[in-house]
Nucleic acid binder design. Structure first.
Length: 554
RNA sequence: UGACCCAUUGUGUAACGGUAGCACGGCAGAUUUUGGUUCUGUUAGUCAAGGUUCGAAACCUUGUGGGUCAACCA
């Protein structure tokens, strides 16, 4: 049976359009970032939506940089954005466009509107225009310059373009409706004078179109059939359609969906920049950042992000996604792909008293029990090993399956041991060493001992272990919604969001690990090799812990 | 005090006038040489009040609650 997957409301619109032969059944979407910051997890949803929906209906997706404001936009961001989209697994082929590619065409459109007496040059100041607009509760007033002749408007606009007037001296506005309840219809500004070097057009222009006069027309020029954007643009749609009608251009359709909010995260480029600038994080790609580059460095697989975006769904209601869902997608992916390794973060020595002095042996262990094709590796074992300090308790509670005086445990892929003696520091009372017995016939894979051990511990062989460090992370913010009204989001920054543990002990199989490799540290979680690693000294970022089960508190 | 959008278990999302389902989470159990994974069971929901209808989560009205809109930003 076919599993009947229900459609989201955008797919319903598209299928309806296809069924009615609109645009001959063609589907063409676009992802339109402004190159003024790095992409974050919220953008990932828009990227996945646009690319996946085009793929589903046999269409294409363009990448288009919405670069109409040269004051904030830079080539550095263009490159970072392209890298992030590719990393996510999407390809726009040769369709890399820029709104600035259309500046000449846009200028012609403006001339057309002037000729149709639908646009006028306004000498009012920004403050005066704001005043003319009125408020949502009161209608606006006509600009005193609204009645200029077509000839005068044409002359003034050409001279604006030719650089005859200082920045901000005049703007081009369209004549829509100053009494409209929708503020965006109150004779919006469509061109402003701004002497700014543009990252692509250089100093060719001193006038630049506004968003409303660039975005929709760019969609139209590219033949975009379904222009998907977030809900806050819903009030722009009447204007979007007004321009299509008045200009008589290809009728792209704007459809709005709700952006995704993820708790404990912020997705405001301005505020993300503030975290970078104030040194709260080390950069846009700090592993604690909700940016695409941040989660990549953190070790989140691209596939996990894609599945997350799919699970989150598409609708129009405000939503708060639990960060646990993202983490569950990451665990699910890494469980399938990450190689298992044993690492001791906080070691305590275990001496196997009845193991021959000076002897070592190699014990095979599976690289990933979820994927047999990853094979096995050999782990050295010997008389002195290291286990996790938290895996030993002098006075354990009930249901404690780990090591304690007299207790018996299995060493993963090795032998069963029983604790017989505890060595303490005479002055501090701290446990410094645990002495155990091992059962030679309990060897993993050929266990004939008949002994049952409740718990299994990870370990490393002391003298063959290699060293490294790990960065453990907590949420970057202490509040589910850091932007909650009232206090400033900076006061919600978690001061303990990163903890570095130096001198961790790793099994020797890590020797050839490289930047970006992901591993499961058995019984700890998933970790990825950071680019700060140096030969002989691996640095890991904690990607996500294993799902928490039992914990020894109480 | 205007216009527009929205309202389904804790969270997200279906049901298109005809049995309120799925995923994640929670809880309980089974399996387990990772207290992971996997498997099984279970929990819990239509914002409110009217109306239309044989029948309403859905359609209508009015409330209520949340969100968005007044940059020469996008």
């Amino acid at each position: 049976m076919e599993d009947q997957k229900s459609l989201n409301f955008i797919e319903e619109i598209i299928e309806h359009d296809i069924a009615h032969g609109k645009h001959a059944g063609r589907v063409h979407t676009r992802f339109p970032p402004e190159p003024n910051g790095y992409l974050h997890i919220g953008h990932a949803k828009a990227i996945c939506l646009n690319f996946e929906i085009a793929k589903k209906y046999g269409g294409k997706t363009n990448l288009r940089f919405d670069d109409t404001n040269p004051a904030t936009e830079e080539t550095e961001y263009v490159n970072a954005i392209k890298r992030d989209i590719h990393w996510l697994g999407y390809d726009w082929e040769d369709r890399e466009y820029y709104a600035s590619d259309y500046f000449d065409q846009l200028y012609e459109y403006a001339l057309d509107l002037i000729r149709k007496d639908l646009a006028f040059v306004d000498d009012s100041t920004a403050e005066e225009i704001a005043e003319q607009k009125g408020t949502p509760n009161e209608p606006g007033k006509l600009s005193p310059f609204r009645s200029r002749s077509v000839e005068e408007n044409m002359d003034l606009f050409v001279r604006m373009k030719d650089g005859e007037f200082p920045d901000g001296a005049r703007v081009l506005r369209v004549k829509v409706d100053m009494t409209a309840p929708n503020m965006h219809m109150r004779d919006p500004v469509i061109y402003r004078i701004k002497r700014q070097h543009h990252h692509r057009t250089g100093d060719k222009w001193c006038i630049y179109p506004m968003y409303d006069f660039a975005h929709g027309q760019s969609d139209s020029i590219e033949g975009i059939t379904h222009s998907l954007c977030s809900l806050e643009f819903i009030h722009h749609r009447p204007l979007y359609e007004w321009f299509i009608e008045k200009l008589g251009i290809f009728p792209s359709r704007q459809i709005e969906f709700a952006r995704m909010n993820v708790n404990f995260m912020i997705t405001s480029k301005r505020r993300l920049l503030q975290l970078v600038n104030e040194g709260i994080v080390t950069g846009w790609d700090d592993p604690r950042m909700p940016t695409i580059s941040g989660v990549r460095r953190r070790g989140y697989p691209a596939a996990a992000i894609r599945i997350f975006c799919e699970k989150v769904g598409i609708a129009k209601r405000d939503n708060w996604i639990e960060i646990e869902l993202l983490e569950s997608c990451v665990r699910n992916e890494l469980n399938q792909t990450a190689l298992r390794r044993m690492v001791v973060l906080d070691p305590i020595r275990v001496v196997i008293t009845n193991y021959p002095e000076g002897q070592t042996e190699l014990l095979p262990s599976e690289n990933n029990p979820e994927n047999e094709s990853t094979g096995e590796r050999d782990i050295p074992f010997g008389k002195v090993i290291l286990i996790e300090r938290e895996d030993f308790m002098l006075d354990p509670p009930k249901k404690y399956f780990r090591l304690a005086p007299g207790a018996t445990v299995r060493l993963k892929s090795a032998y069963i041991i029983t604790c017989q003696e505890v060595i303490k520091d005479e002055t501090t009372g701290e446990v410094t060493e645990v002495h155990c017995n091992y059962y030679p016939d309990s060897k993993s894979g050929s266990d004939t001992s008949g002994i049952k051990a409740k718990g299994t511990l990870h370990w490393v062989h002391e003298s063959s272990a290699i060293s490294g460090e790990v960065r453990m992370f907590e949420r970057l913010f202490t509040a589910e919604n850091p932007m909650d009204e009232g206090s400033d989001f900076m006061s919600k920054v978690n001061p303990q969001s990163q903890k570095v543990i130096k001198n961790i002990r790793l099994e020797p199989a890590f020797a050839d690990a490289v930047d970006g490799d992901s591993f499961q540290f058995i019984r700890h979680g998933y970790f990825t090799v950071d680019r700060d690693s140096k030969p002989g000294h691996l640095v890991f970022n904690q990607t996500v812990s294993l799902k928490e089960g039992w914990s020894p508190k109480e």
